[in-house]
């Protein structure tokens, strides 16, 4: 099967097992440029594994993933890493900011991994932090900022490379509803203005409501809810 026309990233028949557990059992996925797609499902359903496969972090046992016409599953680790550095951005629930770097250094990190000079990288990082309203935290370390602020720093970091695709795994999982919504607002606004597509893994409906479309994963199988309506 070929990818749906116009899609940025499409996956077909993904299967992945970890020992005796089947995490993905023929999952499908597609996302268009600039689209925000929520991936929902009960815990242990395989939604995080789906995200990891789509982002090229994990290679599925079988199935195909095409990103911008390129097959992800046959790429080498180095190629996929390069792709993640340059085209993708990531926000996780927690444990993602390097505790010993300052916030602005954390945001600048992906640019520096791509070889941007330190000064320039930090200037760009500061601009993004401003958009996410955390520029006043630039010189603080992650340990000194609140959870919501930390997540906004993480969002800035995910967007600093101007990625075409942003992967967010429970980005508000550790936040209260007010902070969570603020992060979601800023994240989706920023992504939309940068025309970045977002794959948003969440189990919260109110977070998923920030998406354009919803996929539900159950027992390793995906279901595109759009087609039901």
């Amino acid at each position: 099967m070929t990818a749906p026309p116009g899609s940025l990233l499409a996956a077909h028949g993904l299967r992945k097992t970890y020992g005796p557990t089947t995490a993905l059992d023929g999952a499908e996925f597609s996302i268009h440029p600039g689209e925000v797609v929520a991936v929902m499902g009960p815990s242990g359903s395989g939604k995080s594994t789906l995200l990891h496969c789509l982002a090229g972090i994990v290679t599925p046992d079988s199935g195909s993933i095409t990103y911008d016409g390129r097959e992800l599953t046959t790429m080498s680790d180095a190629e996929r890493s390069a792709l993640r550095r340059s085209e993708f951005g990531f926000v996780f629930q927690f444990g993602q900011l390097v505790p010993e770097l300052t916030c602005v250094e954390n945001v600048a990190l992906p640019l520096r991994l791509n070889g941007t000079a330190r000064k320039e990288a930090e200037r760009a990082a500061l601009a993004w932090m401003e958009r996410l309203e955390v520029d006043d935290l630039a010189r603080k370390r992650p340990g000194e900022v609140s959870g919501g602020q930390g997540q906004r720093v993480a969002v800035a970091r995910a967007l600093v490379t101007n990625p075409r695709l942003l992967f967010a795994d429970e980005p508000t999982g550790a936040l209260d509803s007010l902070n969570g919504e603020r992060v979601m607002e800023l994240l989706t606004d920023a992504a939309r203005s940068a025309n970045a597509a977002v794959v948003l893994v969440t189990h919260e409906a109110r977070v998923a409501a920030y998406s354009d479309r919803e996929i539900v994963v159950r027992d390793g199988k995906s279901r595109d809810m759009e087609r039901l309506v």
Partner: peptide, 16 residues
């Protein structure tokens, strides 16, 4: 259930 869920979420999107 899924149909209903999709409808709910669509509604939530509008509200959001």
């Amino acid at each position: 259930l899924d149909t209903q869920r999709a409808e709910h979420l669509r509604n939530m999107r509008v509200l959001t």
